[in-house]
Amino acid sequence: MNVLEINHLKKEFDGLTVLQDISLSVKKGEVVSVIGPSGSGKSTLLRCATMLEQMDGGELVYMGEKAAWEEKDACVYAPKEKLKQVRRQFGLVFQNFNLFPHYTVLKNIMDAPVSVDRVPKEEARQQALALLGQLGLEDKADAYPYQLSGGQQQRVSIARALALKPEILFFDEPTSALDPELTGEVLKVIRQLAKEHMTMIIVTHEMKFARELSDRIIFMEDGVIRQQGTPEELFMAPDDRVKEFIGKFAG
């Protein structure tokens, strides 16, 4: 089954079309990378998929359940209760972490399970500690976000998203806000998740990483999907724009 299905997504900002006719589906366990120049609409795509932005057209389907669809040229969303269910299907990791500064690392991770999903506190705590262990942060449970390096903060934000057991995880340039020497520890965690067959869509500028990790790569430009395919297909693509873009980042 497709975890996520986006059909003919259209998004405008003040009458300016930012995404046009984007269709994409992601199967369970698939890892999809999204690459493309700045301003091509990658973040907007993730924000539409995670319902932080309202779509202006098209369909959004999670696990076969429609979250949004088109009716008489307008996009309608499912009722609130239904959307609440839909929200449990996905997690999002932000470029700049967006951790809650007034909560400890542990509370950042366990608070949503407890206050949103009503998981018993002790169970949520154990689960959060286990996640911290997996991500090599067991000694940071009681630290506050400001006491952590960027790489550690991003790992905590990944743990926070995982704690809700999402079907699919979105990453919007998870290493772009980090010093180069800190990107490795975050990429390692994402690699580990891929090994465990976590379904993921990753917007990234790390070409080498995308190439080794992805089942599929999507190249976006000017609000459309210009090319997509396996890493081999895309990196060998005859498309000049893709070549030029990849060349820039291959460094």
């Binding site: 449990r88 700049n96 967006n98």
Partner: peptide, 12 residues
């Protein structure tokens, strides 16, 4: 705004 967005995606 990121604080609101993080909370929203987490289901608060």
């Amino acid at each position: 705004i990121g604080q609101y967005e993080a909370a929203r995606v987490l289901g608060y």
